[in-house]
């Protein structure tokens, strides 16, 4: 079978997603603005993800420290654990793991919610009652995901570092102040800012993919399940691709 016939569904999907994203930008800047729905979605997407993100971040910091310790001890550099964990969490692990957890929780929930609204004709009902469903459902959820993920990443980084502090204290006594001084002293502008900026892109990817999959859901309840599932898979893949691009761009800008 020719290569392009096999790849056609993928190319179609990317084309549709690109059109959907362009429509998002067109609708987002055009009035009317759905501020109250945006605030509501920020609460649903941000606040309600906090406990899951917090728990996973804490465990991540703790386990990372415990796993790293034997190697560091072998080389006699265990004093560098706070610095090393701090850089790893702030630069890479915090944003990526939080974004993946976020994709699992929010991407699937947006996909399923919009998918079920599509198959039960609620989106059509909005349209016939004079509401722009794209603006009300897609723009608000995507913006909320874009704005909330960086906030969750900052909180997740802080909680992870606290987990790491406890991990260090399982084996030795280290004061909280000293731990954080070591972490902060070894963090540069170059470590924190690009990681924070890329989390906006991760949030946007999760929001837009979840909305895209849900908005064009079909084939009844089976389609809703498929939308939720493929929203998570596609958003997770995009997070890794964006991460790869972010590293390249950051390195390029740093060299300039």
């Amino acid at each position: 079978m020719p290569f392009f016939s096999i790849q056609r569904p993928i190319v179609d999907e990317i084309g549709s997603l690109t059109r959907f994203t362009l429509r998002f930008f067109r609708e987002a800047f055009r009035p009317r603005y759905e501020f109250s729905e945006l605030i509501h979605q920020c609460f649903v997407i941000g606040y309600k993800s906090l406990s899951l993100v917090g728990l996973t971040a804490f465990i991540m910091g703790l386990v990372l420290t415990m796993q790293l310790r034997p190697s560091m001890v072998r080389y006699g550099v265990e004093a560098q654990i706070p610095a090393m964990v701090g850089i790893a969490i702030v630069r890479e692990i915090g944003p990526v793991i939080t974004a993946l957890i976020f994709a699992g929780k929010i991407g699937s929930s947006i996909g399923a919610e919009l998918g079920s609204m599509r198959v039960t004709e609620q989106i059509d009902a909005m349209e016939v009652s004079g509401t722009n469903p794209f603006k009300f459902l897609v723009v608000t959820r995507t913006l909320a995901a874009t704005l909330m993920l960086p906030v969750l990443v900052v909180l997740s980084d802080a909680i992870s570092l606290y987990g790491s502090y406890l991990g260090v204290n399982i084996y030795e006594v280290l004061s909280f102040r000293l731990f954080y001084t070591q972490v902060i002293d070894n963090l540069a502008y170059y470590d924190a800012v690009p990681a924070f900026i890329k989390s906006y892109f991760f949030g946007f990817a999760v929001g837009i993919v979840g909305c895209f999959k849900g908005y064009y859901s079909n084939k009844g309840t089976e389609g809703v399940g498929r939308s939720a599932n493929s929203a998570v898979v596609m958003a997770s893949v995009f997070i890794f691709i964006l991460d790869l691009l972010a590293v390249q761009v950051t390195d390029l800008l740093w060299e300039l």
Binding site: M117, T120, E121, Q122, D124, A125, M126, V128
Partner: peptide, 10 residues
């Protein structure tokens, strides 16, 4: 427009 499925916002 009255939808067959009612289409109430659940």
């Amino acid at each position: 427009f009255l939808f067959q499925s009612n289409a109430l916002y659940d």
